[in-house]
Every structure is written in structure tokens, then in C-alpha cells.
Amino acid sequence: MRLAGQGARAVDAQRLTGGASMETWAFAIEGPKGRDELILRRRSAPFDPESSRSTSLAAEAALIAAARAKGAPAPPLVHLCDDADGLGEAHVTRRVAGETLGRRINSDPRFDGVRGLLARQCGEVLAKIHAVRPPAAAELKAADAAVELQRYEDAYRASGAERPVLELAFRYLRESLPEPRPPVLLHGDFRNGNLIIDPEKGLAAVLDWELSHIGDPAEDLGWICVNSWRFGRPDRPVGGFGEYEDLLAGYAAAGGAPIPLSRVRFWQALGSLKWGVMCLMMYASWASGADASVERPMIGRRVSETEIDLLNILEAGL
């Protein structure tokens, strides 16, 4: 037992749901010093349409350490696996108590007391993450709005799909590109579902750092406002639990350079568009035989949700 020494044993391993390219296992180590609740993350899919954007798990480990040093909550790293572990690319972190399921966070009465605090806490934590100097070892890629838009338009064209609302959105957003601003370290997948929420304290940890990159700070703020992560509460724009104003106020209060709402709305629209294209790509990975899971083709039927969300944003204006 490399993690706990002689006399310890790993128990209660259980694969958690969600995550199609990455396996996540909950397990515990029981040893002379007691019981440790842990999480193993392990890359399972040899190829994934998102993988070109994702970092290695070693980079994720470096990011978690750098973010924690700036006061952003992330699960402490316990072990980065190497060849001797025989698990391939993997790491072990401590398990942080709390809820990750967006629907429960947004509607379970257990979270009534903290729900109103979450949007501001998200803004504060994002400001801390954006203040992190990117670890050189992580070799993060950089992308601004123009680059992201082009990347996803290329992927859409390659898919062969003909979706009028996506066409409209590509053109509209290309004509609405915000002025570039100094790039920062981004989490890259900061949304309800990747946050651990404690019913007493609120935001307890930020998970899933593998899509981290360098870019426009408004990208992270817009992504958590995408309606696909509001889990049945479209009336609460931030994650289905909070308001834009609180997110932006928390961001500024924690030292983030102020961001106008229209810039967040631009990235929210681009976020819906990206998610629509990702859904097409996940279907394509099934159709090509690269991924046989039943999840993938069904995700292809989520494109229409992004189309109605895009129409709602485009009609209301950014």
C-alpha cells in the first residue's frame, strides 16, 4: 500500500456516475491511523473529441496545488500515480464532503440556507483562480474569443450538420467579438456540477480542472451561466442558483478586474454554442465507432436545448 503503508487496505471502491472520458472512483483507505475517504481520477477513453483541449492529470495536479496556494478551494492532492501503480494516467485526491448534483443544489431544501450565497462565492473564487500564475509544467494552451469561435465553427463544419440556429449564432457572435483583454488562467469548466456545495458553508471545492487554459476571464463567468447547467431553474442565471449581479460583485470584491455583464453574456452565448457543437462531436465519436457508450448518441439530442437557449440570448441581446 503505497498511500498508507503496512497494514492498510483499500476498501469500498465505487465508480461514480458522470464523466465519459474520465473514470472517477470513490474509495477509502483503512489503516492503523484510521480511515481516509479518497477519490481516484483515471483517464479511461483512448480518444475523446474534447481531449485535444484537455490537460494531463499531472497538469491538473499542478493546477490544483497552484490554485489552493491562492486560496481557491480544490480537493488536496494525495498522490499522482506513476508506472509502479499500474493505473495508467491517474491521481488520488482527498474526498471533500458536500453535494455535486446540480438539481439537488438548486432544489433540495437542505441548500436553502446557502443557495443565495453561492453566486457571490463563485465570483470570489473565480477572481482567486484568475490571479494564479499559470504553472509552467502544466503547458496550458491559450485561446481568446476569436480563436474559440473559429475552433468550434471548424468542428461544426467538419460534422456535416445543418443547424440554422448554430449558423446564425456563429455569424452573430463573430460580429459581436469583445475587445481583447489581458489573458488569465481559467478553470475552463467552472459550472454547476463541477462544484462541491456544503449545506452549511456553500462552495467547498472546485473539481475537474483538466480543461484549464489561458484566456478571457469572462469565459469562466459566462460558462457557469449557460442554461444547460441551470438544472431546471432558468430564472436564476448563475448555475440555476444565483444572480448575475452577485457573481460580478463577488468577482470585483475579491480583486478581479471588473467585467461588464454584456461580456459575460457574450461568453454565455458562446458557451451554449460550444456545448451544442460538443454534443454534435460526441454523437460523431459514437457514429465513427470510436466510443460505443449509449450516452454518446443520446447527447447528440441535446443540440436543440442549446438552440433554444441561443435564440433566447440573441433575441434579448447581449
Binding site: N227, R230, G232, R233, P234, D235, R301, R302, V303, S304, E305, E307, I308, D309, L311, N312, E315, A316
Partner: peptide, 14 residues
């Protein structure tokens, strides 16, 4: 299309 794909999907315009 949404009525076929995900009739329960809640969005801002609903």
C-alpha cells in the same frame, strides 16, 4: 424539435 428531444427542458423563454 425540443418537444421530441427533451420536452421537459426548462429555458428562459418557457
Amino acid at each position: 424539435q425540443l418537444a421530441i428531444d427533451q420536452p421537459g427542458y426548462k429555458h428562459e423563454g418557457a
